[in-house]
Design a binder for these strands. Structure first.
Length: 321
DNA sequence: CGCCTTTGACCAGCGC
DNA sequence: GCGCTGGTCAAAGGCG
C-alpha cells in the first residue's frame, strides 16, 4: 500500500520553508548597507522571533494534518477490510442466487444491474428459472457452466466534466475499447472496454454517462483481473479530466454487484437500507466518513492540493516579512 | 509497425 | 417468425 509514501509527502511539508530560510537568511538588499546594520539587528531579531513563532505554529498545524492523514489511512485500511469481509460473506449468498436463477438470462442480469445493482429476485426471474430447469440436459448443463464463470460485477461512479465525451475512466488498468452503443434507456452512448494488459484477462468494463446526472459516468466492471494492477497510482491525465471517486475493481472484488457511488455526499436510499434504514445510524455515518477518508487518501490531487495550500501559506507568510 | 479507436455489421436473447 | 435491443466482432483508419 502506498500510505507510507503518502505520509512522507505530508511530513516533508516543513522541509521546504526551512530550507528557504537557510538558503536566503538575509534579503539581498540588506547586504552591503552599513547604514541599516544597527537598526536591522533589532528587526532581524524580531523577524527571527516571528519566524520561530510561525514555524512552531505551522509545525503544530502540520502535525495536526499528519494525524488527520494517519486517521484517514487507518480508516481506509479498515474500510478495505470491511469490504473484503462483506464480499466474502455475500459470495455464498450470491452463489445460491445464481443457482436459484441459474437460468437467468444475460439480459436479465443486465437489467438488474441497471436497476442500481439491486439483487431483488423478482417473480419473473424465479419463473424463468423454473421453466428453464425443464429444458434439455445439454442446455441446462451448458447454462450451468456459463453461470459458474459468471463474472463478478462492480459498479463505480465517476464525476467528470459534462463536456468531456471521452468516456475514459482511468483506474490503473489498461483498457481497449471494442465497441460503443447507444442504448434505449439512455441517450448517452455506452462504451465497451476489455482489459488489454493481459491477453487472457477476462475483465470487461462498460462506461456510460448517468441519465440523471450527465456529469457522472457509471463504469460497470465484470470479472476479476488475473494479473496485478499495472499502475497502482495512475493520475487522471490527458483527455480524462474526471476524478475517479469510486473504487477500481481489485482482485478481491467478488460477490454481487457492488455500487460505491462516492459522487454524492449524502447517503443514498440503498446505502441507508444497508444499515437498517436509519440515516442517523452511527454505523452509516461511520461508513460514509470512511468512504470520504478513503476517497481523499487515494486521490493524488488531494495530496497535491494540500501540499500546495500549505506551501502557498508559507510563501505568503514569507512575502509579508 | 503495432496498438488503439471508430463504427457498421452481425449475433443472440427476449417480447409480442 | 419478426422486430427490438444489447453485446460483440472486425475492418478501416489514426497515431506515436
Amino acid at each position: 500500500m502506498e500510505f507510507t509514501s503518502l505520509l512522507n509527502t505530508s511530513l516533508d511539508l516543513n522541509a521546504k520553508p526551512l530550507r528557504m530560510i537557510e538558503d536566503h537568511p538575509i534579503p539581498k538588499q540588506e547586504v552591503g548597507s552599513n547604514l541599516f546594520e544597527l537598526g536591522r539587528d533589532l528587526t532581524v531579531n524580531d523577524e527571527r522571533d516571528a519566524l520561530i513563532e510561525e514555524l512552531n505554529r505551522v509545525t503544530a498545524e502540520n502535525k495536526k494534518l499528519t494525524e488527520l492523514l494517519t486517521v484517514m489511512c487507518e480508516n481506509c485500511t479498515e474500510l478495505r477490510n470491511q469490504l473484503m469481509e462483506y464480499t466474502a460473506k455475500t459470495s455464498p449468498v450470491d452463489n445460491n442466487n445464481n443457482n436459484n436463477t441459474a437460468a437467468s438470462k444475460k439480459r436479465k442480469a443486465e437489467s438488474s444491474i441497471n436497476n442500481g445493482g439491486n439483487n431483488n429476485m423478482d417473480d419473473k426471474n424465479i419463473n424463468t428459472g423454473a421453466s428453464e430447469s425443464s429444458s434439455s440436459d445439454e442446455d441446462s448443463s451448458k447454462k450451468r457452466r456459463e453461470e459458474h464463470v459468471k463474472p463478478k460485477i462492480l459498479r463505480t461512479c465517476v464525476r467528470t466534466e459534462v463536456s468531456d465525451t471521452s468516456l475514459i475512466v482511468k483506474d490503473g488498468y489498461q483498457w481497449r475499447k471494442y465497441g460503443q452503443k447507444v442504448t434505449r434507456d439512455n441517450p448517452s452512448p455506452r462504451a465497451y472496454f476489455k482489459c488489454s494488459f493481459a491477453p487472457t484477462c477476462p475483465v470487461k468494463k462498460k462506461v456510460q454517462r448517468s441519465i440523471e446526472d450527465q456529469s457522472i459516468v457509471v463504469a460497470t466492471y465484470e470479472g476479476e483481473h488475473n494479473h496485478p494492477q499495472p499502475s497502482k497510482v495512475e493520475t487522471n491525465s490527458g483527455s480524462n479530466k474526471g476524478v475517479a471517486l469510486g473504487t477500481a475493481p481489485s482482485s478481491n472484488s467478488s460477490g454481487p454487484t457492488i455500487t460505491l457511488d462516492l459522487t454524492k455526499s449524502k447517503p443514498s436510499h440503498e446505502d441507508t437500507k444497508r444499515f437498517g434504514g436509519k440515516i442517523d445510524a452511527p454505523e452509516l455515518q461511520h461508513y460514509f466518513v470512511e468512504q470520504m477518508a478513503s476517497t481523499l487518501t487515494k486521490d493524488p490531487n488531494f495530496k497535491a492540493a494540500l501540499a500546495a495550500a500549505i506551501t502557498g501559506n508559507f510563501l505568503r507568510q514569507n512575502e509579508k516579512m
